[in-house]
């Protein structure tokens, strides 16, 4: 599979949120405004890319050599948690506004299954280092894309006249379902 196809597949066809249904928590939590959605997307992109690189190296350089592959999940989580702490510190220093608007969802990237999912899919698919890079960055961009698209839609929904019992999250869930249906149109584009 060429790298370009791998990238398209990660962004659109196997979109983390809308096709694999990973990382739903921030997808609903931080998608009220486009600005915060972009900030969250960038934070996730950074964590995902760095976590992908480090976990890939750890898997092949440490876990496989020592024959302790069963530690994969716990070691990966450890690495991701440390990385998220690091990103949190950097964001607090660089952009306090973004730090406040991301709020609780920033530490929650730690338990964002999209990140662990990406790291594990990298290993399971037996990607080479370059393939792994393309795949993780692609999936992170796909996550950002889904988040930004959804927040744009939600900003419009805020202004429309919605039946009382559908206001807020219910209509957001329905919208997300329709958005996922729309993304199903990409399936079959890349095998």
């Amino acid at each position: 599979m060429s790298l370009f196809l791998l990238f398209v597949s990660a962004v659109l066809v196997n979109n983390f949120v809308l096709a694999r249904f990973l990382g739903i928590c921030p997808f609903f939590g931080v998608s009220k405004k486009v600005e915060t959605a972009i900030g969250m997307g960038l934070a996730v992109t950074f964590v995902m890319a760095v976590a992908g690189i480090i976990t890939w190296i750890i898997q092949y350089a440490v876990l496989d050599r020592l024959g302790v592959g069963y530690l994969q999940t716990i070691v990966f989580i450890l690495v991701i948690a440390a990385l998220v702490q690091f990103v949190e510190m950097v964001i607090e220093k660089v952009s306090p506004d973004l730090y406040q608007s991301l709020g609780i969802f920033l530490p929650l990237i730690t338990t964002n299954c999209a990140i662990l999912g990406a790291a594990i899919i990298n290993i399971q698919s037996g990607f080479s280092f370059v393939q792994m890079l393309v795949f993780t960055i692609g999936s992170a961009l796909g996550f950002t894309l889904a988040l930004v698209l959804f927040s744009g839609i939600r900003e419009r929904i805020e202004l429309s006249d919605i039946p009382f019992y559908f206001r807020g999250l219910p209509v957001a869930f329905i919208t997300a379902g329709i958005l996922a249906l729309a993304f199903m149109g990409f399936s079959g584009l890349v095998k």
């Binding site: 750890i58 440490v62 876990l63 020592l66 530690l71 450890l78």
Partner: peptide, 9 residues
């Protein structure tokens, strides 16, 4: 190995 891997990481 398991203990070392985890603690070193």
């Amino acid at each position: 190995y398991a203990v070392m891997t985890l603690s070193v990481t």
